[in-house]
């Protein structure tokens, strides 16, 4: 079975353990990338409003989430 076929098979798996684990890991990856990029944006002097616009969330949401970073 080729890699692509294997991936397609796994993605269409009805086993909740497989599907849910993939979603959880994807969320972990998403959070890591978001934190990295928000930090980078702040380092480069972006405002919370600018960051929120590109992330397509409210300014309050992004500020509340990353306020604890101390910037």
């Amino acid at each position: 079975m080729s890699d692509a076929t294997k991936v397609a098979a796994a993605a269409s798996s009805r086993d909740p353990a497989v599907g849910l684990a993939a979603v959880a890991s994807l969320r972990g990856l998403l959070e890591s990338l978001e934190e990295l990029q928000v930090t980078n944006a702040r380092d480069q002097g972006w405002s919370w409003q600018q960051i929120a616009d590109v992330l397509r969330v409210s300014r309050q949401a992004v500020h509340k989430k990353y306020r604890r970073f101390g910037f």
Binding site: A4, V7, A10, A11, S13, V18, A21, A22, A24, S25, L26, G28, L29, S32
Partner: peptide, 18 residues
């Protein structure tokens, strides 16, 4: 807590190479 081997495996099922 971070992204480990289990995550790499789970993400591979979505076609993502961690």
């Amino acid at each position: 807590d971070g992204l480990g081997p289990a995550d790499a495996q789970a993400l591979a099922t979505l076609g993502i190479d961690l």
